[in-house]
C-alpha cells in the first residue's frame, strides 16, 4: 500500500469501531441490569431503600415520655437494640414473634411507638407479647425524623458509647438477626 492510503484506512477503522459504540453501550447496560436483578433477588440491592445517615454517629438527642419513657442519654453502657413500631402497622405484627425470640436470647430491646395512641400500644403489646425492656412514645413523630425514620418497623443497634451501629428496615427476620445483628452484638458487647 502507498503511504497516502494509510490515514484513510485508519479513519475507516476508527469509524468501524465507532459503529460498535451503541452495541457496547447496550451490552454494558444489559449486564448492569442483570447484576441488579441478581442482587435484587438475593436482597443485596434495593434501589428504593433510604440509607441511614446515623451509622457511626451518636444517637440524636431526645427525651420521650411513655412507659416508662427514655432519653438518648439512657442508651449507654451496653449494646441496646431500639425497635420502632406501631400498633397500626401490619408488618410489626409479623415481627412480634421474632422480637420475642430475640428477647428470650438475652438481647436488650427498647421500643419506641411511632404515632400511636398509648392505649392502642398497650393493647397491642398485651396481645402479641412485650419484648421491650423500656418503651417510649413518639406520638408527634418528630423524634422519628431526627432518626431518619421512613416507616415502621425499623430496628437500630446502639453500642455502649451511644453510637448507632446498624439499622434494619422492615420486619426483622431471623436471617438478619443471625447474619447481621448477632455478630455486631458480639463485637460491641
Amino acid at each position: 500500500m502507498t503511504s497516502p492510503d494509510r490515514p484513510r484506512h485508519e479513519s475507516a477503522m476508527r469509524r468501524r469501531l465507532l459503529l460498535f459504540g451503541p452495541f457496547a453501550a447496550v451490552l454494558a447496560a444489559g449486564g448492569a441490569f442483570y447484576v441488579m436483578l441478581e442482587r435484587e433477588t438475593e436482597g443485596r440491592f434495593d434501589p428504593r431503600g433510604v440509607p441511614s445517615m446515623l451509622i457511626g454517629k451518636p444517637v440524636p438527642t431526645f427525651t420521650l415520655p411513655g412507659n416508662p419513657g427514655f432519653a438518648s442519654a439512657d442508651l449507654r453502657g451496653r449494646p441496646i437494640v431500639v425497635n420502632w413500631f406501631a400498633s397500626w402497622c401490619a408488618p410489626c405484627l409479623e415481627e412480634a414473634p421474632v422480637l420475642m425470640d430475640l428477647k428470650r436470647a438475652g438481647v436488650e430491646i427498647w421500643g419506641i411507638a411511632y404515632k400511636d395512641r398509648p392505649d392502642a400500644t398497650a393493647a397491642f403489646l398485651a396481645g402479641h407479647g412485650d419484648p421491650y425492656a423500656k418503651r417510649a412514645d413518639d406520638q408527634p413523630g418528630r423524634v422519628a425524623i431526627d432518626w431518619g425514620l421512613t416507616g415502621v418497623p425499623e430496628t437500630y443497634l446502639i453500642d455502649p458509647a451511644g453510637i448507632v451501629r446498624w439499622r434494619y428496615v422492615g420486619p426483622l427476620t431471623t436471617d438478619a438477626i443471625a447474619g447481621e445483628l448477632q455478630p455486631l452484638l458480639r463485637r460491641y458487647a
Binding site: R15, R16, L19, F23, V26
Partner: peptide, 17 residues
C-alpha cells in the same frame, strides 16, 4: 430485550459501513 436490541445493534455495527 438483550436479544432484540443487542442483536440489531450488532448487526448495525457489522453492516452499517
Amino acid at each position: 430485550l438483550g436479544l432484540v436490541i443487542g442483536g440489531s445493534l450488532l448487526l448495525f455495527a457489522l453492516r452499517a459501513p
